[in-house]
Design a protein around this nucleic acid. Structure first.
Lengths: 227, 227
DNA sequence: GATGTGAATATGTCTGCACATAATAACCGA
DNA sequence: TCGGTTATTATGTGCAGACATATTCACATC
């Protein structure tokens, strides 16, 4: 007997996988399914809503619910702090601040943050190590306006300090691959040109830019997820 | 006045960002918040549940709702078909099957799919092009048992054929970076050692392995998301 | 002090109902 | 035929109440 919304979800998914309902098909209305399964419409709604969020179904008012024609797999990635990422692998985490100075950011960074060209920002470069071997090279630009007090970034990583002290409202993340420059290779103790996994993150607090960071991960780094 | 669950969600998020409620704090119960905001408990529940799914809150029965201590940002990535990805950028898509043969997969692939070492699988190598320039090199191993009829993979890409014809229940995805091998560089028309963005995907239909694919993307490829 | 038991409690979910909203479909007049 | 208005309809969301379930906490027992 089908009772909970998870059972409904599973059954609907089964029918889709089994091609009872094929991509593009309109499936029965919530009301009809509620009747069939002997549950309230809200329960069916919950099940179908979850499937729509996962990209399996497409729903439009009045038009009904259809099996997604182009199943864009929607995967959720967990993006932890570098420290937790490393500790989670059972390795010892350490951290070194390599440089800290006011400077004017490269045009690409200023543009991403929506700041004027000549603006001065705090530029940090630091290295995250796992079992004393370089794991991630962090290159960060900070908007000094968001720093009421200026912490000692030798002691606490910028990321953790920001999380604990600066509110932020939105951010975007981009993932890519890049060959290590000579500098990066030297700092990460890798052959020049090694393929690095790059995470670029930019965050704002409302309209105020906060920070723009590039995390370069050594080869062997993987992000995993399940669908 | 706060009315909908999205308003509740926004207000709770505001309080967290503003550090009214700090990481680790237990926030008021659903009932208390429902009273404060003048809505039903179900509405508060919906708002808090969404925030918990995003990783902002942690909820446990009886223990209550706490602001996540280690804010693992949970980002959702859309992983479209390569064809749609390219067409979505306004480029012309084309596709070439480079090779198709039965062979026994490398141990890593067999292990990932849970197949015995010597098993024969269908091995496809193909190239996806954007505006006639190589964009993605696809290296795929297919379990022949899942192919009732064998389509002509010259005409339709394996990915699209599978989506339309083979049900699947679970899959996992891993993202990484790798230097192009000599072969890959030649096929993608890149200098050897170029940093490729690699998407490895493995899918099963219940317990039956379906396919294991490696998509190597040329430099410049990015996956984006917003948090 | 350690351990097991039971009451208390916050969240998880379901029901049945209502109204809001958006998008389609039907209609009607020029 | 076209264009605009109106009715219809499936989903989106809300409410109040109820019960289920997982923990925690306090208490009793060894």
């Amino acid at each position: 007997m089908l009772a909970g919304w998870e059972d409904i979800r599973a059954e609907v998914l089964r029918r889709i996988r089994a091609h009872d309902w094929r991509p593009g098909d309109t499936i029965p209305t919530e009301e009809a399914l509620a009747l069939e399964f002997g549950v309230a419409r809200a329960t069916v709604n919950r099940a179908l809503r979850e499937l729509a969020e996962e990209g399996v179904l497409e729903r439009r008012r009045k038009a009904g619910t259809r099996v997604a024609l182009h199943p864009v797999r929607r995967a959720t990635l967990d993006i932890p702090l570098t420290r937790l990422e490393i500790e989670g692998r059972g390795q010892a985490y350490s951290y070194r601040l390599l440089s800290e100075e006011m400077a004017s950011p490269p045009p690409a960074v200023a543009a991403r943050l929506g700041l004027p060209q000549g603006a001065q920002m705090l530029h940090l470069v630091c290295l995250h190590l796992a079992d004393d071997r370089p794991a991630v090279l962090e290159d960060r630009w900070l908007n000094p306006e968001t720093l009421k007090v200026q912490p000692d970034f030798h002691l606490v990583s910028a990321n953790e300090w920001l999380l604990a002290n600066v509110p932020y409202t939105t951010g975007d993340i981009s993932l890519s691959a890049a060959n290590a420059t000579a500098d990066e290779a030297r700092l990460l103790d890798l052959p020049p040109g090694s393929a690095l996994f790059i995470i670029d993150r930019t965050t704002w607090d409302r309209d105020h830019p906060v920070t723009c960071v590039r995390l370069a991960h050594v080869p062997g780094f993987r992000m995993r997820t399940t669908v």
